[in-house]
């Protein structure tokens, strides 16, 4: 049986992880390669590296980072942030990334998803959606682009369905309302999207307690849960998360 995945997310800026981390025994707490290798050792199922600078200058840095991570980390990892072309995706995959996530560029040019899927297979095309709850309509969410700074009038569920048809192989779904609150994932959002598509959905934004992970999987229908603060600060170890989920009957790789 396929297990549910625990995915730590590392936000990278100028070759450093920028959300603080407090691992013991780490010489350099902000080094993404060292942190990635450590997560791999302690049983993370996958990693996501997001280049939050995403400028032309940082592009070269992120390729070098992917190369270094791939030499030291033998679990899958996704790279995202400012990716716009099939050539950039190709470069990152060839450098050792398992998957590449696209966000704004796919909204502006949905054909990017199709082109990438036809060339690399849809399993390495991740569509990242930053979702904001609609103020007007109940249980509707709008897609935001440019690192969440620009709302669009695109409906999140409709966009997810369209993206699947175009070739997205996975959806990384971040609730901008829940992000950083530690009050739990937006499981109405997760459920609305996971019910509407047949591809895996990664729930993101809001993890604060162990039961939040369980709720995202069981109530939200998520295939994987992504988190940053609660694992970086070692509120909970990966092992604790997996033991908790296993204890409540969720299949995990433990």
């Amino acid at each position: 049986m396929l297990t549910k995945r625990i995915i730590p997310c590392l936000d990278v800026k100028d070759d450093r992880v920028v959300k603080g981390v407090k691992f013991l025994n780490l010489r350099d707490a902000g080094d993404p390669v060292e942190l990635g290798a450590r997560y791999s050792e302690v049983g993370a199922d996958e990693l996501v590296f997001l280049d939050i600078t995403a400028t032309i200058r940082s592009r070269k840095t992120i390729v070098e980072l992917v190369e270094k991570v791939a030499e030291n980390v033998f679990i899958p990892f996704t790279v995202g942030g400012g990716i716009q072309t099939v050539e950039q995706i190709d470069e990152l995959l060839r450098s050792g990334a398992e998957k590449v996530s696209v966000n704004t560029a796919a909204v502006e040019n949905p054909n990017l998803l199709r082109q990438a899927a036809q060339r690399f297979g849809n399993q390495c095309v991740v569509l990242a959606i930053d979702a904001r709850r609609s103020k007007e309509k109940e249980d509707k969410w709008q897609v935001c682009v440019k690192a969440g700074s620009e709302p669009t009038d695109i409906d999140v569920v409709e966009w997810a369905v369209k993206a699947e048809k175009l070739g997205a192989g996975e959806i990384l779904l971040t609730s901008m309302d829940a992000d950083g609150t530690k009050e739990g994932y937006d499981n109405k959002l997760n459920k609305a999207v996971s019910d509407a598509v047949n591809i895996p959905v990664i729930a993101s934004g809001g993890a604060g307690k162990l039961e939040h992970l369980y709720d995202a999987i069981v109530d939200g229908g998520a295939d994987a849960v992504l988190m940053a603060s609660i694992t970086h600060y070692e509120n909970y170890t990966i092992k604790q998360m997996k033991e908790y989920l296993k204890g409540r009957g969720v299949p995990v790789n433990l």
């Binding site: 049986m1 396929l2 297990t3 549910k4 995945r5 199922d45 996958e46 849809n122 399993q123 192989g169 996975e170 047949n198 591809i199 895996p200 295939d223 994987a224 790789n253």
Partner: peptide, 13 residues
Amino acid sequence: QPGQTVPHMGWNL
């Protein structure tokens, strides 16, 4: 075949 999430993505036994 439909009925399962596709891609089959993740860790399986």
